[in-house]
Design a protein around this nucleic acid. Structure first.
Lengths: 339, 339
DNA sequence: ATGAAAGCGCTAACAG
DNA sequence: CTGTTAGCGCTTTCAT
C-alpha cells in the first residue's frame, strides 16, 4: 500500500504538501495540487485511517461508535440503517456493537470504543443510571442517547413519544369496545417501558376504566417473555379481551401463544403492539401497531452527534419524534389500513 | 487517558518493559511484572488500540471486518451474532458494515476496511465475480466468504446445502400432492439463487413432474419482489397450488399478497420458504421453512478467519453446513411441528 | 531481564 | 505557497 511518503517522492514534493492536498487546505497552488492528485490516482493511494486517527486531535478521527441493545430487534435495525446512512454521507466509519441487553458486554464494548479513539458515540443505555455511559459522558466524549435517556445527565437524546403513542393505541381499543385490556411491558428498568405504561394508565383514566393490576405484566422485552406472559393473561379467570404488547418481540411471542391456543384475532382477542415492522402486514391478520420512526431516529441522532463533535459547547437538546398508529386488522372492525 | 509512558514513569521502569508485561512476554521478572500490573490497575490504564494497530505487524491488529449484504434480513442478523460472539471471545473488535445489496457501497466499505488496517474480513460478496473482494483476496488479506463463494478463487468459504435444502422442501410439497409448484427466486447473479433453483428442478425430475417455466420467477431477494412476483403467479390462468419462496423477505412479501387476496393457507395455496426465523411460528399459519444455521455460519467463518490469520499458508477449505426442513402448518396436512 | 531508540503513517506547527 | 520536523502511543529490535 502506497503511503504519503511514496506519493510525495513520486510527485517530487514534500510530504506535508501532499497532506495539505488531501485535507483540502487553501494553501496549495493549483499546479502543485494537480500534480499531486495525478500521482495519488496513479498509485491508487488511500489514506491510512489508523494513522490519521492516532495523530488527529479529538473530533477528527472520522470514526464513531454505535452501541445497540439488541440487533435481533427490527426496530434497532432501522435505527442502525439511519445512522449508517448519515455517517457514510459524512465520511464517518461506524464501529457498531450489539450488547444483547447484557450490561457486562456493554461495558466491554464501551472500553473497546474508548480505546479505538472514536470521535463520538450513539448509544441506547441499558437503563437510565447506566454507569458506563455516564462515566463516558463525564469524560467529555460527545454522546447522543437514543431510545432512552440518562437520568440527571446533560446529554443529547432522541426519543419518541412513548406515552402518547401508547395512549392512542389504548384509546382505539377502548373505542372498539374493549374494557379489559392486558398490557405486557418490557423491563421496568428501561425508561420506555414505564412511559408506555403511563400512556396505558392515562388512557384508562381518560375513559373512566378502572385499572386492574392483574392485567399488567412485566417481562424482559423478549420473544420468550411475550409468549409466557400472554399465556398468563389468557389463563386468567376473567381474561382480557384485548392485548397491548410493549414491543415487537413481545408481540411476536404473544402471537405465538394466541395461535397455539387456536384463538381468533380479533374476535377472541384483539391485539395492538408497540413497534411496527415493514412486514407487519404479512402477519395474519395484519397487525395494528404503534410505529416508531426508527430510521429517522438514527439519522437525527447522527446529525446531532456530528454537530456536537463540531461544536462541543452547543446547547444540549432532547428531540422527541412522534409515533404513528398504523391501524390494520388485528384490533377489530376498523376496516382502515393505513400502512 | 493514561498512556504507556505514564505507567512506565509511575512504576519506575522503561516503557518497553510495560509493553512486555502487556504482551505477556516471558522476559519479565515476576517482581517487575507485579509492580507494573499494580500501576496499570491504579491508573486504570487501557491500551490504545489505534496506536497498537498502527505499529503492529499484519495479523495482530485485533480488528476484523464484517461486510454483509442486508442487515434487514434476519438471516444475516444471525450470522452477525455468530461472528460477534466468537470475535469477542478472542479479543477482536468487529468493524461491521451493511452494503444493502449495493455494489457501489460495498466497494466504498471495502476501501474503508482496508484503510482501517483490519487483520481479516468476512464477507458475503455481491456475486461470484465480485471484483472488489477478489482484488482484496489477491492483495493477501485473509478473507472468508459466507453464504456465497467466489468463482475460481482460492479462499475459505462457509455455505449451506442450498440445493439439497430446496430439494427436501419441494419433495415435501410433492408428497402432499402438489404438482404445480411456483418458485420465486432471488437475483440470478447470486449463486444461492441458482443453487436453490437446481434443487427445485432436481426434485421435479425425481418425481417425474414436467417443469413449467411460467411457474419460475426471478426477482431481487426483497420483500417487494416477493409481493409482486407472487401476484403474477397467482394471476396465472392455471395458478400454482403451492409456492416455494427463495428467501425470508420474499416469503413475507408473498404472505402479504396471499392474505390480501383472502386466500387460505394451505388450502388455497401452500407455502414453504427458504430461511426460518425464530418467530416463524408466530405467523399464521406457522411457516414451514428451510432453516439455515445462521449463527453457526457466523461462528465457523470467524473461527476459520482467525485460523487463517494465524497461519496464512494453511489449506483453503469450503465448509458446507446442512439446512433443516422445519415442518409447520403452512404446507398442508402434515400435523408435525418440529420448531 | 531491562533500557534505549527506531519508526508505523499521518497532521500541524513552524520556518522560510 | 512549500519544506521540515515533532510527535500521536505503541511494538520491537538492539544493546547492555
Amino acid at each position: 500500500m502506497a503511503s504519503l511518503k511514496d506519493v510525495a517522492k513520486e510527485a517530487g514534493v514534500a510530504l506535508g504538501t501532499v497532506s495539505r492536498v488531501l485535507n483540502k487546505s487553501e494553501n496549495v497552488s493549483p499546479k502543485t495540487r494537480k500534480k499531486v492528485e495525478k500521482v495519488i490516482k496513479k498509485l491508487g493511494y488511500q489514506r491510512n485511517r489508523v494513522a490519521r486517527r492516532l495523530r488527529a486531535k479529538e473530533g477528527k478521527t472520522h470514526m464513531m461508535g454505535l452501541l445497540i441493545p439488541d440487533i435481533q430487534n427490527p426496530f434497532y435495525v432501522e435505527v442502525v440503517r439511519g445512522v449508517e446512512e448519515y455517517a457514510l454521507a459524512n465520511d464517518y466509519a461506524v464501529l457498531m456493537c450489539n450488547f444483547a441487553q447484557e450490561e457486562a458486554r456493554e461495558k466491554l464494548y464501551l472500553n473497546i470504543m474508548r480505546s479505538e479513539g472514536i470521535d463520538g458515540l450513539i448509544v441506547a443505555p441499558v437503563h437510565q443510571w447506566d454507569k458506563g455511559v455516564i462515566d463516558l459522558v463525564h469524560s467529555g466524549l460527545p454522546i447522543v442517547c437514543v431510545d432512552r435517556g440518562l437520568s440527571g445527565i446533560e446529554a443529547d437524546v432522541v426519543v419518541v413519544s412513548n406515552s402518547q403513542g401508547t395512549f392512542e393505541a389504548i384509546e382505539l381499543l377502548v373505542q372498539l369496545g374493549h374494557e379489559r385490556i392486558g398490557f405486557i411491558a418490557g423491563k421496568p428498568q428501561i425508561p420506555t417501558s414505564m412511559e408506555r405504561l403511563r400512556g396505558y394508565e392515562a388512557a384508562l383514566r381518560r375513559y373512566d376504566i378502572a385499572k386492574d393490576e392483574s392485567l399488567i405484566k412485566f417481562g424482559d422485552s423478549k420473544h420468550e417473555s411475550g409468549k409466557e406472559l400472554s399465556k398468563e393473561l389468557l389463563s386468567l379467570e376473567k381474561p382480557p379481551t384485548a392485548l397491548f404488547t410493549g414491543n415487537n418481540l413481545i408481540t411476536l411471542g404473544a402471537l405465538e401463544t394466541i395461535h397455539k391456543r387456536g384463538l381468533n384475532i380479533p374476535d377472541d382477542i384483539a391485539i395492538v403492539g408497540f413497534d411496527d415492522m415493514y412486514w407487519s402486514i404479512s402477519l395474519n391478520p395484519p397487525l395494528t401497531a404503534v410505529s416508531q420512526p426508527g430510521y429517522e431516529i438514527g439519522r437525527r441522532a447522527t446529525e446531532m452527534l456530528l454537530q456536537r463533535i463540531a461544536d462541543p459547547r452547543r446547547e444540549y437538546a432532547k428531540v422527541e419524534l412522534r409515533t404513528k398508529l398504523v391501524v390494520r386488522q388485528s384490533c377489530g372492525s376498523h376496516q382502515g389500513s393505513t400502512g
